[in-house]
Design a protein around this nucleic acid. Sequence first.
DNA 1: CACCAGATCCTCT
DNA 2: GAGGATCTGGTGG
Length: 197
Amino acid sequence: MNILNRKFFARNPVEVARDMIGTYIVRRYGGDLLVGKIVETEAYLAEGDTASHGYKPKSNRTESLFGPAGYAYVTNVHRYFIMNVVTEAVNQPSAVLIRAIEPVEGIEVMKRLRGKDNLVDIGSGPGKVCIALGIDRSCDGISVTSSDSDIYFLPRSTKENLDIGSSARIGISSAQDYLFRFFLKANPHVSGPTPLR
DNA sequence: CACCAGATCCTCT
DNA sequence: GAGGATCTGGTGG
């Protein structure tokens, strides 16, 4: 299977974030296969990025962020989990945050996990993505570059014509001059008050 | 130990 | 648009 490999993730997080738009996240959950198309991401830099969790020294919470590329960094914000894929190299705490997905497969299971029936309520935000895919802290630090993984990624379909927009990142109070948020324009599953931003 | 801030979401107005 | 829920880590006494 042609899954996204270590080399794909071992690059600058801004490039990886843009390249992940339109790819698919696959989650093995119990006996079910949950699949979502990634429609929104954010990049966090290893250096000089005051908004990144890696800007502070390594802690128990952020250990996987400082590890090698191609591993999950799952942590909590308030009472919710959010999921990143680590990029670049060891001791370079950079990552791509999965901010929104469009449900593709296993939709009924995702609806049940989310407790919502409306499709646009399933994955339109980083916390929602983790709930819909059954991702929690037990997924922190696992490899996502093998088809044996409980989480892995499939490339975008080459035929698809993607209209990708960028903006400042959401929910942070510093480094607003970095335009590190990427999203599929006019896709209703993108997070935020309006799909177009 | 107390207090505060945070890469969020939901339920009201 | 405002505020609460609720968990973790960092800071300061």
